[in-house]
Write a protein that binds this DNA or RNA. Structure first.
Lengths: 251, 251
DNA sequence: CAGTGGTCTAGACCACTGG
DNA sequence: CAGTGGTCTAGACCACTGC
């Protein structure tokens, strides 16, 4: 009767009220009941709706806030998190210049190299939870700082949710790509996982980044997820790390 | 009268009670009043001492727990966090095998290549908040998985707190190095910052890792801090990323 | 000023651990 | 069983925002 691989040997059989409230709010977020940037109902309001005390709603919202799904602003309200605010330009980009800081460096110059529809290869399909051969959008772009190409990115997006995305549309947009996804396609990335390696560029890559073929680069493979933890983007980045570095904080 | 670089233009002039309580507990932690692995007083106990309600102590401890300084265990108590428990072998090491998981891979085979006292160079001194020429300990070691050398690490430690650390002592210890630091030298690392780059190894490095000179490697420079945010270790790691990768989660 | 999130309390009860 | 952390409540008051 032992079951070593399953964590919950007995039924969970207990879920705190605030977790249930959290799940309900989360459901509304997923359903798009409140749009990114908009306020959600006040704590008192939600407490009244769910027939619980303010403290219980508060704890639910606390967790959502700590997961960056929602932002609290004292005196104003609680707002659905968004990538479309000038706050931090790129929330998931951890590459910073060796000298000075990201602010001093200013925004990147972005060049869309390519944007086309194609069929998902096996590994792309697996990363995006699609089937091999499903339609995906592939984007390739270069980010430059002070005129120096620094990042080369390949992106794959599932075809259906991103129907209508074109190179022109990408070139026309200002601000983070994730902001565009949010406002134009209703896709809000909330979490991401990265796998980082050191690699050498192939001929085309070294040409696009204007670096020698023998220069080691950081390979950053990112899968970004939307609310339901559904993977909605696969991104493979090549970073120059002779003038910049990937910064990580461990707690 | 303007002061653009300072955040608090006006005085802070307000600090919640629970923050003050948190600071008091933190002070006891720094002072080593309770040792890693030991329980701190119960919430009720602390509440009585500080003449506040349980809820206020609770919120203080909540923050300490979320910073991994303390671990809560329902029914048992709240314990000072420690690196010396089999839980997670290496809390700050984010390199994982491409196939299988860290558990399946098992513990690393560790080889201390070198351990000697030397004078701090300018950059080492800066990282450790020492003066150039101050005495530091330098350790070099190799970690291997399944017999394959995978990580080459250079460590610099300030000489004074780590007086008495020798290669023999390192070789004799089992478990994480941070556990040894904790039990033998009373130094508990709580936070760390990493700068990650892609590099090529020099001749000696490629020999120690048994990789070709042209193989790109991940360079991970870590500064680990103890309670007061004092830097207590500089570590430069070279990771093979042909069989492993650095895994990071973004929220 | 009213409305929001943020703090604090006192007390009740629940879930888990160990003797 | 007593003691621990974990949940929940109801109500008071504080700090901040905007009108």
């Amino acid at each position: 009767m032992n079951n070593p691989t399953v964590l919950e040997v007995v039924t969970p059989s207990f879920s705190p009220l605030y977790q249930q409230i959290k799940a309900l709010i989360l459901q509304s977020l997923k359903a798009g009941k409140w749009k990114p940037g908009e306020p959600i109902p006040s704590e008192m309001d939600l407490a009244a709706r769910f027939r619980v005390s303010q403290g219980t709603v508060r704890k639910a919202i606390d967790e959502l806030a700590s997961e960056n799904l929602v932002v609290r602003r004292q005196g104003k309200g609680t707002f659905v998190a968004t990538h479309a605010e000038h706050q931090v330009q790129y929330r998931f980009l951890k590459l910073v210049p060796d000298v000075g800081d990201t602010d001093a460096e200013g925004p990147a110059q972005r060049t869309i190299v390519d944007c086309k529809r194609q069929r998902a290869s096996a590994d792309v399909a697996r990363a995006l939870a699609l089937r091999t051969g499903d339609s995906v959008l592939k984007v390739r772009r270069v980010l430059a700082y002070a005129g120096i190409p620094t990042i080369l990115e390949d992106l794959w997006l599932p075809g259906t949710p991103f129907k209508g995305l074109t190179a022109e549309r990408l070139r026309a947009s200002r601000g983070p790509m994730y902001a565009l996804f949010e406002t134009e396609f209703g896709v809000h990335m909330v979490r991401a996982k990265e796998k980082i390696r050191a690699v050498l560029p192939d001929a085309l890559q070294s040409k696009l980044l204007d670096v020698p073929a023998g220069m080691p680069l950081l390979s950053v493979e990112r899968v970004a997820h939307t609310y339901n933890d559904a993977p909605m983007e696969l991104r493979r980045g090549l970073y120059r790390t002779d003038t910049h570095h990937y910064r990580n904080e461990l707690g």
